[in-house]
Amino acid sequence: MAATVEETFQRPVGELLRGWRERRRLSQLELANRVEVSTRHVSFVETGRSKPSREMVLRLAEHLDVPLRDRNQLLLAGGFAPIYSESSLHSPAMLAVRTTLRRLLKAHEPYPAFVVDRWWNIVEANAGIGIFTEGIDEQLLQAPINALRLTLHPDGLARRIGNLADVRATALASLQRQVASTADPELQDLYDELREYAANDRPSQPGQAEVVVPFELVHDGHRLSMLTMIATFGTPLDVTVSELIIESFYPADDATAAYLRSL
């Protein structure tokens, strides 16, 4: 059973840091070289023989590529106050971010685009995603709408994806990397759920000419082919902003482009 946030805070900071180091598959020597301290010091921190300073916790977290949410947890476990804010996307402090996202999504129309949080719940979207939500089971459209569940659930978009096995394999591989990177139990639960839908999948082998897996969607009898791109904010200092993911869909051929513009 995954540890709760309260249990995480009760664990020593050294134990948490060791967990992140092992998750990144680094030895104490490799981490020590990156942080420019002795291997002995890293060992003492991990075993609790040495209490790291606030600055050392942050340096280790940076070199271990620990997400901002978890850096706050490391600071709390070490007896320090968190330094990264976590603002609601709809708070006054996030007005500039929210405005930028909406402008970006609007500019991408008529092609689909949406913004998801750390757990792939859609927090903003443009009008283009209407081609994804048509005919979807109402339960999957209850807020918060999870983009991966909407796409891969048997009662969701999966029924209209022409290359479902390939799309699902790519999505699961990406989600698995995210689980490994964050150790987030909610993401692990989502991965386990989505993997159950793939029991009978037989993904095709990519040809030599293929460089990305297309997203093939059937809409009103038209077979569309799209490519997807993922974007995130650079140098975020807020937990919420650091976890936002923008997924944009682009037509992979002229016929798809013309059809999407006609809607």
Rank of each mutant, 00 (worst) to 15 (best):
K106P: 00
T4W: 00
R54M: 12
R54T: 09
P214A: 13
Q10N: 11
A96M: 14
L26G: 03
D184P: 02
T240A: 06
D166H: 05
V115R: 00
L101I: 15
V211M: 11
G207H: 08
Q73D: 14
L89N: 02
F44E: 08
D65G: 07
G162K: 06
F44W: 11
T4I: 01
T235E: 13
G162H: 09
F249L: 06
F215P: 04
V239C: 05
Y259A: 10
P154I: 05
V13A: 01
L263V: 14
L187T: 08
L164Q: 02
Y84S: 05
D238P: 01
L175H: 03
V123T: 08
E243H: 02
E247W: 09
L58V: 14
E62L: 13
L60Y: 14
A258P: 03
P185N: 03
A32T: 11
T99C: 00
H108T: 06
S242D: 12
S50Y: 10
I245C: 07
L74V: 10
V97K: 02
A209K: 12
E6F: 01
E62D: 15
A198N: 06
M226A: 01
L224Y: 02
Q28K: 10
L74R: 04
G156I: 04
E15H: 11
V97Q: 02
T47I: 09
G48A: 09
S248G: 10
L244D: 02
Q188L: 15
V213W: 10
Y191D: 00
R11S: 14
S43D: 06
T182C: 04
Y259N: 04
R24V: 07
R159H: 06
E55D: 10
A173M: 08
R103G: 13
L217V: 09
G48T: 09
S43C: 07
G128W: 03
A77S: 13
D220P: 01
G128T: 03
A3S: 11
D201Y: 00
T100L: 15
R34V: 06
D70K: 08
L60D: 04
P52E: 09
R102F: 07
L187K: 07
N126K: 00
F114I: 11
R54W: 07
A125M: 12
F233R: 01
Q176D: 13
N200Q: 13
G207Y: 08
A180Y: 11
T8H: 03
S38G: 15
A61D: 12
S91G: 01
E62P: 04
E46D: 03
S38W: 13
L101Y: 03
N33G: 07
T8M: 10
I246A: 10
M94P: 00
R118D: 06
G135W: 00
H41M: 12
L64K: 05
V45W: 03
I129K: 02
Q188H: 13
I83V: 15
S174H: 11
V179Y: 03
A61P: 12
Q188W: 13
V241W: 06
Q73N: 14
R149D: 07
R202Y: 07
G162M: 08
L148H: 03
V167N: 03
Q205G: 05
V241P: 03
L172A: 07
S50L: 13
G79R: 01
G207P: 06
H153V: 02
R69T: 13
V42I: 15
A107G: 08
D254K: 15
E55N: 05
A231W: 08
W119C: 09
